[in-house]
Design a protein around this nucleic acid. Sequence first.
DNA 1: CATATAGTTCAAGACCGCTTGAACTGCACC
DNA 2: GGTGCAGTTCAAGCGGTCTTGAACTATATG
Lengths: 196, 196
Amino acid sequence: MKGYLWTGGHGSTSTEAAPSEGRLAPWEAIAVDAVGNVIEFWGFKRNQGRVWALLYLRGEPLTAGEIERELDLSKGGVSMLLRDLERWGVIQRVRLPQDTVWRYGAETDLVRMVRHVIEEREAGFVARIRADLAEARRLAETAGSVPAERLERLEKMATLAEHVERALRLFIKTSRLDVSGVLAVFRDGAGRRGEK
Amino acid sequence: MKGYLWTGGHGSTSTEAAPSEGRLAPWEAIAVDAVGNVIEFWGFKRNQGRVWALLYLRGEPLTAGEIERELDLSKGGVSMLLRDLERWGVIQRVRLPQDTVWRYGAETDLVRMVRHVIEEREAGFVARIRADLAEARRLAETAGSVPAERLERLEKMATLAEHVERALRLFIKTSRLDVSGVLAVFRDGAGRRGEK
DNA sequence: CATATAGTTCAAGACCGCTTGAACTGCACC
DNA sequence: GGTGCAGTTCAAGCGGTCTTGAACTATATG
C-alpha cells in the first residue's frame, strides 16, 4: 500500500488541474481551507493552518517542494511556514533512510500550537498591560490632583484585567483537558507514524 | 504643576468643556492605551477600546466632540466607533435635560462587548467551518478513490473542530460567571451619578 | 571543482483593513 | 430662509502584514 498516487498520476479520477490550487483534490482543498480559516481566526497565518492540514490529511511526510506545489505557495513562503510550525512543535521534520531531502509530517496536536502560542502571547501581553496600568496608577497618584473617584475607577480597571486574565488561563486549562480527549481520538488509528 | 487643565474643577458638573482643550493627562493616556491594546488583542479595533476606556475613566458622559479632541481622532471615526460601541451595548447615549447634544457614557460591562461579539462571530464562524468539513467529506466519499485512512483523518478533523467549539463555549460561559463578580465590583461606586 | 538541487533570507511589492476628511443630512435657533 | 453646529457616510489614502521571487548558502554527486 504505502505508495499513494499523488506522486504520479491518478489513473481514472478526474482531478484535473484546478486553476488556483495545485493538484489538490477538491475535497482536500475545502478541508485545508477550512483549517486555514480557523487558524487565521485564532490569530495565526492562514497558510500555517493550510500546511498543517495538508500534512495531516496526507498522513505521510511531504517535502517542501510538494507542499509548495499542492498549496500553490512560494518556495520562500513554505520555508518560513514550515519553520514556524516546526518551532511550535506541530510538525516534525524527518529524513527517510535512503532519502536526501527533508520531509515534514504533521504532529497530531494542532492544539498545542494554539495553546503554546496563546500562552506565550498571553504571558507577555498581560504582563505588559498590568505594568501599564500600574504605571498609570502611579502617575495618577503622584499627580495629586486626580479625584479619588477616578483613581478608584482606574483600580477597578486593573481588577477587570486580572479577571479577564484569569478567565483566559482557565480557558487554556480547560481546553487542554478537553483536548486531551480529542488527542486520544486522533491517535486512535490516525497516524501510523509510530516513530519516536 | 498639577492641575491637569481640562479638569478645571471637578466640582462643576457641567465639565466646563475647556474650549478646544483636549490633552489627556499622562496617566489617562496610558490607561486608555492599555485598554486599547487589550481590545485590539481580542480582535476589535484599538480605538473602540480607547473610547470606552476614556468614557469609563471619566465617569460622566462626554460628547463626541470631546472624545474627538481627547483621543485625537477624526470626527467621522468617532461617529463610527460610538455607533459600534452603542450597538454592542457597552456605551449608552444620553441627552441631558437642558442640553441639546448627545453624550455618551460607559456601560460597566465592557465584557459584554467581548462576549457578545465573540458569541456572534463564533456562531457564524463555527457553522461555516462545520459546513465546509461536511462538504469535504461528502465530496471525498462520492469521489470514491479516497483511501479509507484519509477519510478517517478528515472525520477526526471535524471532531477536533467540534471540541474546540465546545471549549470555546465553555470559556464564554465561565468568563460570564467569573465576570459577574467583577461587575459587582464595578457597580460598587463607579456609577455615573444621577443621570436619568 | 563544477553542477544541481534543497533550503534560507530578505527587500520589494501586493494586499487589506482602519482612519481620515470632505460632502452631506438633520436640527435648533436667529 | 439662513446660519451654525452635531452627526453620518464613504471614497481615497495610509500603514501594517503577508507573500513573492531572486540572491544566497549548504549539501550531495560525478
